[in-house]
Amino acid sequence: MIEVKGLVKTYGNKRAVDGVSFKVNPGDILGFLGPNGAGKSTTMKMITGFIRPDAGSATVAGIDVTRDPVAVKAKIGYLPESAPAYGEMTVLEFLRFIAEIRGFRAKSARDERVERAIARTHLEPVRRQTIETLSKGYKQRVGFAQALLHEPPCLVLDEPTDGLDPNQKNEVRSLIKTMAKDRAVILSTHILEEVDAICTRIILISQGKVVVDETPEAFRARKPGARLDEIFRSLTKGDA
């Protein structure tokens, strides 16, 4: 579903992403791990067509993102880091805007999509509130609602549980699980338990390179009995 081949992105003289390759199939929940600055977000931004890779390619459902970015964007639901949204709009206005731009022009189709997204992400209590007045947890849910509104075949989630309390984290995780049934999901995180809880595969990147690509079980088996974060630390020593 999502295929990444030799992606490279350089900022100044720093290689943020250095030849990253992997494949995500429908039903996969890919946990994208790595220290801050390892290149997780940059990779996601290239897959979603926000920034252009210097080399390599990212294809979604067989479409190259640099060839036909609009077609790829239509197939992806993307939750950028810290869930940006237009703060002066209410939740309802914002989601209606997203629905319209996602192609649901008829009022009935649009409202149906919006209502479903609101119900799924439990946004009913704040539907008429402006986004800038929402708590972090609600803002994150608005970002979620926006990403899954058009039921995309691919979901790209950049730190979806960042800044949420434990209850909200649990809720978001079960939401991702239910969403993932026949979809390809990539989520980045640095919370290792999260990977254990929902991911079907782990990719660990360090200094722009993929160092691990395996199942959570195999990852755990690297050092039997050790805690996940110990394994993480030993694999990412190079990152300061």
Partner: peptide
């Protein structure tokens, strides 16, 4: 500044 550029430019429009 608000980061919404990333949202706008990952929606399906040129």
């Amino acid at each position: 500044r608000g980061g919404t550029l990333e949202l706008l430019f990952t929606l399906p429009l040129t």
